[in-house]
Design a protein around this nucleic acid. Structure first.
Length: 190
DNA sequence: CGGATTTGACCAGCGC
DNA sequence: GCGCTGGTCAAATCCG
């Protein structure tokens, strides 16, 4: 992964403003890492690492006016997809989820708080204890209508101060759609 | 009272 | 085929 790509990836998430990245592709690693410095978001975060999971086809990672936005075009077009009125049939459709390839980005931060203030509003829909981790993994979805972005948050078992945040999908709206604070205005420059 | 969170159950994918 | 695991659902509960 190259510098520009990382920047675009961040952009696609609408996560941060004024971030300076110095990226180096490390082919020996399963993911590409980027060290990020600069003003991230409010909160006590410490030099997060950023990477794009190579599980994702790079063409899907590309953003901009990307035609790869699989998020905004929801499968059912529901405007309140997280409030499932699902029949068993719809539920069965959901179960094909693991085959889906969404753009996925990870942040590793040192933070006291689990949920980074990225300007979007998240709703927790699950928590799970995962193998080889002392800490449970939390699952969040963006509460915005038609936005299917998900994120997982877990702490490193080796260092409970380290938080791994994995974003899956891309927002089809700006943070401003959720809040109007100055801080979000800043972040929403993406 | 409505929205958010918690938590046990369910289910599909994967490895053996 | 079976068991394990991760991801999601949804009812119960919490909270402002």
């Amino acid at each position: 992964m190259e510098f520009g790509q990382a920047e675009e990836s961040l952009d696609s998430l609408g996560l941060m403003a004024q971030i300076q990245t110095s990226c180096s592709y490390q082919p020996e690693l399963p993911v590409s890492f980027c060290n990020i410095s600069g003003s991230i978001v409010s909160g006590k975060h410490d030099l997060p690492k950023f990477w794009v999971n190579e599980e994702v086809n790079l063409s899907e990672v590309r953003i901009g006016n990307g035609n790869t936005n699989q998020i905004s075009s929801g499968k059912d077009g529901s405007s309140s997809w997280w409030k499932s009125t699902s029949t068993s049939l719809e539920r069965n459709k959901m179960k094909g989820r693991r085959k889906m390839r969404e753009p996925r980005f990870c942040f590793q931060t040192r933070s006291d708080i689990d949920v980074l203030d990225d300007g979007y509003k998240w709703r927790k829909y699950g928590q799970k204890v995962v193998k080889n981790s002392l800490h449970p993994r939390s699952y969040y979805r963006c509460t915005h209508s038609n936005c299917r972005v998900k994120k997982r948050v877990e702490r490193l078992s080796e260092d409970c101060r380290m938080v791994i945040t994995t974003y899956e999908g891309r927002h089809n709206h700006t943070p401003c759609d959720d809040t109007n604070s100055d801080e979000q205005n800043c972040i929403s420059s993406f």
